[in-house]
Structures are given as C-alpha cells and as structure tokens.
Amino acid sequence: MPAAVQYIIIPLVKVVLIQITLLIGVALTVWLERRTAGFIQDRYGPNRVGPFGLLQPVADVVKLFMKEDIVPEKANKFIHSLAPAISVTIALSTIAVIPFADPIQLFGSEFKLQIADVNIGILYILAMVSLGVYGVTLSGWASNNKYSLLGGLRSSAQMISYELSMGVAVLGIILVNGTFELDTIVQNQAGWKWNIILQPVGFLIFLTAAFAETNRTPFDLPEAEQELVGGYHTEYSSLKFALFFLSEYANVIVSACVITTLYLGGYQFPYLQTFGLSPVLVSILQIITFLIKIFIIVFFFIWIRWTVPRFRYDQLMVLGWKVMLPLALANLTITAIIVTLLK
C-alpha cells in the first residue's frame, strides 16, 4: 500500500465516516431526548415533521441557520466567537481513539476500525475532557453578562472537581489491564470479563463524573434555567448556539462511547468469535453491538435528565470532594492491593 494512501487517504475516510455517523447520532439523540421527555411528562413531543417527528432536528438546524446572529455590544467579539468553536472541536475530536470493532482484513491488508490507535488512548480521553471546560468558561466570560459569567464560573469549578474523581477511577482500569491502549483494554474484556464486573465502584464514579463533565442533569448548574436564564450560552443565538447544542449532545454520545469502551466490554459481544462466523460478519456484528450499547447508555443519560432534579451548588461540591474523591481513592488502593496480591 503506498504511503499516501496509508497515512492520508485511509485516515481521512475514517474521520469523515465516523464524524458523519456522530453528527447523525447527535440529531437522533436530540430527537430521542425530546420524545422521551414527552413520554415521561405524559405529552407527545415533536411528532409533526417527518415520520414520528424524526426530521425535527433537521428543521431545527434550518431554523437556527435563518436566525440573526446577535453579539452583545460590550462582549469581547473575538472570544465570543472562539468559544463555541473550541467547544465543538473538542467534543468531536475525543472520538478519535475509540475502537469500533476488531481489525478487519480487506484486500490483503489490515484495517483498524479506529481513527487513531495511540498508545495512551485513555490519557488522550482524559486530556480532552479537561479541555472541554474552555468553551464554557470563555463563552461565559466573553458574553459580558452576569448570568453567563456565573454559568462559566460554576462550570469550570464543577468540571475541575469531577475530573479528579474521573481520573482516579480510570486508574483502577489501568491497574487491572496494565495498559493505556484502548483496543487492548477492549480485547481484555472478551467473554464476560467486563470491567464493570471487576471495577463496579470505579464504574459508578466514572458514570457520575461523566454526567458532571457533560453538564447534564442532575449536574446542569452551568445552564440552570431557573437561576441563570440560559447559563453560559444566554448571549448566543443562531449558529453559535447550534454549535453549543451540537457539542453538548456530541459529548453525551462520546461519553457513552468511552463508558462502553472502558467498562462495558466495548464492541465485544460475549463469545462471538467462537460461533465460527466470517471475519467481516464478526466486525459488522461488533459494530452493531457497540451501537446498541451506546444507545442504552445515551438513553440512560436522557432518562436521568427527566427524572432526577438538579443538585444545589454546595451539594454538588460536597458530593465531588467529600464523597466521590475519597471513594475513588479507596477503590484505587484496594484495586492496587488485589492486583499486587494476585500477581
């Protein structure tokens, strides 16, 4: 295979395919969220545009395109425009290290179903998570609006606090698997050796921190409507608002991908390899398995949002620092002791 094809064209094709899938996923998630909210609150939700209202996200995007883009007069224009771009870039680039299936053999060469197979996939995810706060913080600052600013401040404090427990929870996974590579971690979870069984406490901590990092209820303080109008995106309209919206839902999907990969066996369907199917069929089934697992987690995110009320700010901080962090550290210590004893 020529170098240009191997290093430029194939990765480019993967990037385009995966990003388009992610964007379609975002549209579907928005629709699913509104329909589920309708179901939970005993009303219909959007059901007019297209079959079951499926085309509603498309109509919304068109509507947002047509809206006037308003920038407040005293806002910092440059950073006001930069913030949504940062948000969406980081939301879309985290997915690069997620493996979607075993490598497949096609035309005599091996293809990895993963954009970037890096040695330190887990750390890449944590780094991207820690960058996610920039979009929210900068938008809150640049809008020159006290509600936006409060939203931005809350968000940065919240995300920094929960990042810590998230990182310590992930260390448990690294100890059990002895690697930072995501595809090795997934392969180690063959059969029923899912990390959720080996690391149940770590899973709970990671899941809770993921809710906090994506600013979803019960941790949606950065945009708490009753107190902060719209929080950090109060002063955003038109396409810039659409970008924030897009990055929020992309973050939900990517978190679902990460949770699945780290704790729920990734693309593994238990004992699929022992059925004697052709490799290509196995890969396709693995992708479908992965999508179903993601769907379940995304649905869980939505379900929680319309069921559990928001935390108060002090409760949020107490939970993050006095409950989750000690729990994560205890989990890490116990895991380390067990791993050392079993060696």
Binding site: L123, L126, A127, V129, S130, L131, V133, Y134, T137, L138, G140, W141, L149, G152, L153, S156, A157, I160, E163
Partner: peptide
C-alpha cells in the same frame, strides 16, 4: 496538555474572570 492546559491555565483564566 492535561497538567498545563487542562489544569494550570484553566485556573489562571478562572482567576482572571
């Protein structure tokens, strides 16, 4: 990226804000 950009710089911006 994690320490300087995700940690220290965000605290700097927090302080400025």
């Amino acid at each position: 990226v994690m320490v300087y950009i995700g940690g220290i710089l965000i605290l700097l911006i927090f302080g400025i804000m």
